[in-house]
């Protein structure tokens, strides 16, 4: 096992432990545990960054190609996004209970996938690749955070006996959490929009057309439209409460499917970034 893989397993272990701490911290109403869980999540970032850095130095390109690299980068951004949010607003610690399982599943999935090295091909060799992928990653991190917040929102809302509501009482009021979910969706929507726009510019530079209804282009538009519907329901129809939170919960896996599922399921010219073939 190479140093990179060892570090990656260490990072995964941190994330699994952090997830456990969030679950127990919230279930046993032990704030100190959830607080430490944020720290453990942050500590997990260190070996993951080292591992990805080592790989980057060895291959000469960032984590953009192949399922292993793509899922890894998505995990890194998701955890980093959450840690920053929880550090800036300690009342949000408990949302780790919804976000960290996503990170564990993604990184766990990538550890089971092929870790083969893929070189940068001529069609990927562009600075647009970095910009485009970076925005996709951060957009996903925002959507994953909105998912985690929505999960916590629904748990509290459904706590008819009040037990879970009590356990999560340090969180801001439900109304505020709702506002935060909408802000995260809006942020993700903006970043996803930039991802689509930079992708279109790159496609035009690379293939001579900015949009060709390739499955991955189509699905990223679909994800954008789904979140646009969310925003309209929230800001125009003033939808509130559980049904809107469910919307955020269901939308995130669709975004994830778009990022890692489409290139494996469909025949797309973008398959290169997941399969490592000529992209």
């Amino acid at each position: 096992m190479t140093l990179e893989i060892v570090f990656m397993w260490v990072a995964l272990t941190f994330y699994v432990v952090a997830t456990g701490m969030f679950v127990f911290g919230v279930a046993l109403n032990r704030e100190v545990l959830t607080r430490r869980a944020v720290l453990v999540s942050a500590l997990g970032l260190v070996p993951q960054i080292v591992a990805l850095g080592v790989r980057w130095a060895r291959l000469g390109h960032g984590p953009y190609i192949g399922y292993y690299e793509v899922a890894n980068a998505l995990t890194l951004c998701t955890v980093a996004f959450f840690v920053i949010a929880a550090w800036r607003n300690p009342r949000l610690h408990a949302t780790g209970i919804g976000i960290m399982p996503v990170a564990v599943l993604l990184l766990g999935g990538s550890m089971l996938a092929s870790k083969a090295d893929f070189p940068i091909t001529a069609s990927l060799a562009s600075y647009w690749l970095f910009i485009h992928v970076a925005f996709a990653n951060v957009a996903f991190a925002a959507f994953a955070a909105s998912f985690g917040f929505a999960v916590v929102f629904v748990i509290r809302q459904r706590s008819t006996s009040g037990k879970w509501a009590k356990r999560l009482e340090r969180m801001p009021e439900q109304e505020v959490v709702e506002g935060l979910i909408a802000r995260l969706v809006l942020a993700g929507f903006l970043l996803w929009g930039i991802m689509i726009a930079t992708g279109a510019i790159w496609a035009n530079e690379s293939w001579g057309r900015y949009w060709s209804w390739d499955p991955i282009e189509t699905w990223s538009l679909i994800v954008w439209l789904i979140y646009a519907i969310y925003l309209h329901l929230r800001f125009m129809r003033h939808w509130k409460g559980e049904r809107l939170a469910w919307f955020a919960i269901i939308a995130m896996p669709i975004a994830l499917f778009c990022l890692v599922g489409i290139p494996t399921v469909f025949n797309t010219i973008h398959a290169g970034y997941i399969g490592g073939a000529e992209g």
């Binding site: 189509t218 699905w219 679909i222 646009a228 519907i229 309209h232 329901l233 125009m236 129809r237």
Partner: peptide, 24 residues
């Protein structure tokens, strides 16, 4: 109207989804 807007966004979304599974 909001209904028209959401309806159209939904229609275009679903239409595009179907289009990715039907050979073009």
């Amino acid at each position: 109207s909001m209904r028209t807007a959401v309806g159209l966004l939904l229609f275009i979304g679903v239409w595009s989804m179907v289009a990715t599974v039907v050979t073009q």
